[in-house]
Simulated scan of single mutants.
Amino acid sequence: MTEVLPLNNSHLPLKLRLEDYLRLDEAGAFEEYRKTELIEGEIFFMNAQHRPHAVIKSRLHVRIAAALAALGHGWEAVVEGSIAIPPHNSPEPDIVVTSEPDGKGLIPLDSVKLIIEVSDATLTFDTKRKLAMYARNGVPEYWVVDVNARVIHQMWAPVDDAYAESRDIAFGERLTAATIPTLSVDTSAL
């Protein structure tokens, strides 16, 4: 059945659906762009990661992975794993803590416990657009690591397009997750 749409005299943006984005990716449409992600139906090219970003992400991943292994909950920290957030999102955060690291396809949203974005050049995008997307889709906890200010913005308790609770942790302080019992990370070497 054909849907009847009202007459429109202005241009309307078209939001790409997750399944169409994945088809385009499988067909090689983004090969010359290296890495992309789908945010609110728009395709974004991802910049190269310079050393400060890459080193902080690597060090943080090692610490979180070790802390999760010690907890024994079966959760795992995955680096640059794409998440399925239908109908219009497939972000690729720097680190995602999931209860389903194995399997085919994208990481399912309902398995996500924590998302971490490391920001040196993308702070505004990560603290505005991505924050709203993650909160709106019920991601329990979100950290934005501000490389330049040397602080981690920790947010939890998603409500609509925001997080009701937050705190800032300076590099060097111990960071304790708000939503993962007993997960604590030393940030002194970041």
Rank of each mutant, 00 (worst) to 15 (best):
T179M: 15
A121M: 08
L5D: 00
E42R: 07
L38C: 06
R23A: 13
T36H: 09
G81Q: 10
I83Y: 00
V185L: 03
M1V: 13
L60I: 09
A170R: 15
I39S: 01
T176N: 02
N8Y: 00
Q154K: 12
D25Y: 13
E31I: 10
E76S: 08
R59D: 13
Y134G: 08
V118L: 07
I116Q: 03
V79M: 14
L71H: 04
Q49K: 15
L183R: 04
L18D: 04
R59W: 03
A70L: 07
A69R: 14
T2K: 11
D120G: 03
V79L: 14
R23C: 12
N47V: 14
L106C: 12
N148M: 08
G41D: 02
A162V: 00
V4H: 00
L71Q: 07
P181Y: 09
M155T: 05
L14V: 12
I39N: 01
H50N: 14
Y142A: 06
A170C: 12
I116N: 11
E19F: 14
L109N: 06
R34G: 07
I85C: 03
S184L: 00
V144G: 02
Y134P: 01
L71Y: 01
S111N: 05
L183F: 01
G103K: 07
E76I: 07
S166K: 08
R167A: 11
A48W: 10
I56E: 02
K35L: 09
S111G: 06
G72L: 09
T122D: 00
A162T: 02
D110C: 09
A70H: 10
L18Y: 03
A164T: 00
V147N: 10
M133L: 15
E19K: 15
D120R: 13
L22Q: 15
E32M: 13
L12S: 14
S188G: 13
E37L: 06
M1S: 11
K15G: 00
H88V: 15
F44T: 04
K104W: 04
P52Q: 10
A66W: 05
P91W: 14
F44K: 13
I152Q: 07
E141Y: 14
G28L: 07
K104C: 01
P181M: 11
R150S: 13
A149M: 11
L7T: 01
Y163R: 02
P13Q: 02
L114H: 09
L175K: 07
P6K: 00
V159Y: 01
T127R: 14
L24N: 10
R63H: 12
P6A: 03
N137C: 08
L16Q: 09
D120A: 08
F30Q: 08
K128A: 04
A177L: 02
L5Y: 01
L123F: 04
L5W: 00
I152C: 07
R59Y: 02
